[in-house]
């Protein structure tokens, strides 16, 4: 098992800064903007994006940040050990807002599907966008990200680890599994 670091702390910071600029550009400012991090690591990412947007737009920027837990909307609850939900924190009604969902890794798209279900129970946003730090491919739903930190084509046998200071104490993105030369041998690496 080999772990290779693909994003260092500085790369993550640059990606967050760029995504913040892209969000502000796409939204034409910070008005009616609600960043919702998906626990666990989407929450600190959303907070960083929010801080960055406030830096860009000035501290009177109206963008808001919160957390949206999707545990209770997952479609795989019955095939895993019981998952403990995380707090949902909604600073205001989502009606009419442009919601930006924020997560660390976009993979099958099932988490985002659950998040869309959760949002529809909370109200009717004007638009829903998706920002992720890493897009690793292998989608199982017709879902794509609007803002991507890094596209990381990967094998489904590999594992992407996102570590953020707020959640883990250190900060990097690494990819592990399937050492060089092992490529294409197929099953059994995890």
């Amino acid at each position: 098992m080999s772990a290779r670091i693909v994003l260092q702390a500085a790369d993550i910071t640059r990606a967050v800064t760029r995504i913040a600029h892209e969000i502000v550009e796409a939204n034409r400012g910070g008005d009616d903007l609600l960043l919702l991090g998906i626990p666990t690591r989407g929450v600190p990412l959303a907070q960083r994006l929010h801080a960055e947007i406030r830096r860009i737009e000035g501290s009177d920027a109206k963008a808001q940040v919160g957390a949206l837990d999707v545990t209770l909307y997952r479609d795989d609850l019955g095939s895993n050990p019981t998952r403990t939900p995380h707090p949902t924190n909604m600073p205001l009604s989502i009606d009419g807002m442009t919601v930006v969902l924020v997560d660390d890794v976009l993979y099958s798209g099932r988490t985002i599907r659950a998040a869309l279900d959760a949002l529809s129970d909370l109200g009717r946003p004007r638009a829903v966008r998706l920002a992720v730090l890493v897009d690793r491919g292998h989608r199982e739903f017709p879902i794509r990200a609007d803002f991507v930190g890094k596209n990381l084509p990967s094998s489904s046998k590999e594992r992407i680890n996102v570590r953020l200071t707020e959640a883990d104490g250190d900060e990097y993105v690494s990819i592990e599994g399937r050492a060089h030369g092992e490529a294409g041998t197929g099953d059994g690496s995890r």
Binding site: D69, L72, Y73, L77, T84, P85, H86, P87, T88, D117, D121, L122, G123
Partner: peptide, 22 residues
Amino acid sequence: RLLDVAEDMATVSTREVKKLPA
């Protein structure tokens, strides 16, 4: 853990759609 999950459930009970698909 049980009381914390109940906190999450309590926030659902304050919403307009008081239902979860879990």
